[in-house]
């Protein structure tokens, strides 16, 4: 939770299309060499992003090195019921970052 920020509406009407904004702290390191030592620096980027609602993935991102550092991503969801979102980011080092949020649908 510490590395990600998400913004979702807390309440919505059934069938409403809501906008979700997400940010995650990540260097999105391209494979390169250290400027001073010449040591290779391996690629370490978030390659997969998933947004799920009540356990069902509704958006998936497959990212490459062309995505800027500290990735921002906004998208929409049509909500039909109350529930919980889960957002997951996975990087090349095998780290997974997650964030959750709840919404009440009237």
């Amino acid at each position: 939770m510490s590395k990600a920020r998400v913004k979702v509406p807390k309440k919505a009407k059934k069938g409403e299309i809501i906008t979700i904004k997400t940010l995650v702290k990540h260097k999105m390191q391209r494979a390169t060499k250290d400027k001073k030592t010449g040591e290779p620096i391996p690629r370490n980027i978030i390659h997969t992003f998933e947004a799920a609602f009540n356990g069902k993935t509704f958006l998936k991102g497959n990212w490459d090195t062309g995505v800027s550092a500290n990735p921002y991503c906004a998208f929409t969801l049509r909500v039909q019921e109350s529930g919980e979102y889960t957002f997951t980011w996975k990087d090349d080092k095998g780290e997974t970052y997650t964030a959750n949020a709840k919404i009440e649908v009237a």
Binding site: K56, F58, G61, C73, A74
Partner: peptide, 16 residues
């Protein structure tokens, strides 16, 4: 990058 949508997405819209 690539984004996979579902009908649940409501809109085929993304910003990054």
């Amino acid at each position: 990058c690539n984004f996979e949508f579902t009908p649940d997405s409501g809109k085929a819209w993304v910003s990054n």
